[in-house]
Design a binder for these strands. Sequence first.
RNA 1: CGGAGCGUAGCGCAGCCUGGUAGCGCAUCUGUUUUGGGAACAGAGGGCCGGGGGUUCGAAUCCCUCCGCUCCGACCA
Length: 486
Amino acid sequence: MNKPAKAATRTAITPTRAEDFPEWYQQVIKAADMAENSPVRGCMIIKPYGLAIWENMVRIFDPWLKDYGVQNASFPLLIPVSFLSREAEHVDGFAKECAVVTHHRLEAGENGLVPTAKLEEPYVIRPTSETIIGDAMARWIQSYRDLPLKLNQWGNVMRWEMRTRMFLRTSEFFWHEGHCAFENAEGAKSDCLTILDFYEKFFRDYCAFSGFKGVKTPEERFPGADQTYSFESIMQDGKALQAATTHDLGQNFAKSCGIKYQGRDGAEHFVHTTSWAFSTRVIGGLIMMHADDDGLIMPPRIAPQQVVILPVIKDDSSAPQIMEFCSGLAAKLKAQGLAVRLDNRELRTPDKMWDAVKKGIPVRVEIGGREAQDQAVTFVRRDLGRESKTTLSAEAFLQEIGKTMDAIHESMLERSRAFHAENIVEGKTLNDLKDYFAAGKTGLVKVPVELLKEEKLAEVKAEYGLSARNMPFEDEGRKVLIGRAY
RNA sequence: CGGAGCGUAGCGCAGCCUGGUAGCGCAUCUGUUUUGGGAACAGAGGGCCGGGGGUUCGAAUCCCUCCGCUCCGACCA
């Protein structure tokens, strides 16, 4: 009798991506212990492992901004309602999703605490900070010598979303928001493009994200912007994710906030401002881009833990030797600047192993009696799975580990590129677009921009839940990518 | 805010139609044996069955009403 087929196909995450993508996404987050829902509607608790990813993103990206001349600052969480109403389009865009603070005191009432002491002017919890930063800029900028002024803040914002999903869309989310002011339109545009390049580099070289830079169509622009640029990527279910945006705000906010300077010509001019951001949403993108049916797969360069060392102890007699070898190995890896975790928890080895798998730790090292004896290292790459199990001398392993990290990164990026290549198809006509999605296909269709003028486009978009993602730079504005998006 | 579904142990679920002392799997704890890709046995702990109201001798189950969550849509990083 043959043994029943070993549950080799059992996946750490149920359901699988193919069975139910949204549910799979939730389960990956739970399995990796990244975040959980909170008692506050639409807001999540980011757990240590999830926040560690964000902290790495901050650690990597922040120096780039500083190097480019951006200074960090911090503006209030609360914004006077009157500030928000300064820019007409901006109001339109955000008013509906603002949380409003109207009182400043609680008193015991019949059914518990009730707000008393109404504020004369309510505040909104910032959905974004253009207006309050603009107000400060108006005071800080007098002369062309004060320009450019480049500011950024790392913080949280709140948008009262109708429908939330962990990381991808939550009412409160963390981000950085850059706000810059320039003498002229060229300065602002160049800022938008420079930062967009930073974003592309960040996603490509650290998150192993393929994607495309481009210009937003007018209807997809940020409220109050003259031009919005974005970096977008396609997730494993074929839907696009806007990973980061930069906005050329022209003189719109300068005029509504009164940001003026005396120019080289002695006359008074309005500045040109920009704003740009990426958020904790990117963490959701990491999951949907890279994770598989066994859970997360972290790109090595932003992984909170890059190497996990699992001692495999069979009997207590060999334990001290194994642990000593493990500690030594951990110390040497740390000395190379790697984030190492020696998992000496009192759990069974398979449980620790699956924990490492579900957290997507790039390299898992297993050290048992044999390795300790031979001064060797057995390791597995998370992106390749158990087939990649390799044993090297400790010396060789320590020499190669940096290259292994790079190789994992490159292979993840390559996978992402291949996926993008397969999921962007060219179309010419509205019917091409319609037929593609009518056939149940996913991904994006690249069509000539002239199609945006067709009246029937709205119908097709509505029918299949499509939107214009952006007009990729590589096509010089002649084409636009259309598809479903997060 | 519209449409659909769901709230029962830490997690995943059954029980509800047809009311009668709350169950299963995993996880947890204890012990023993184990341990190189998801261990076995034995025992134990753990629940205001989302909240409130009703019907009833009796409600997880029937009715009303809130609240929350998930998915699809509209809105959006």
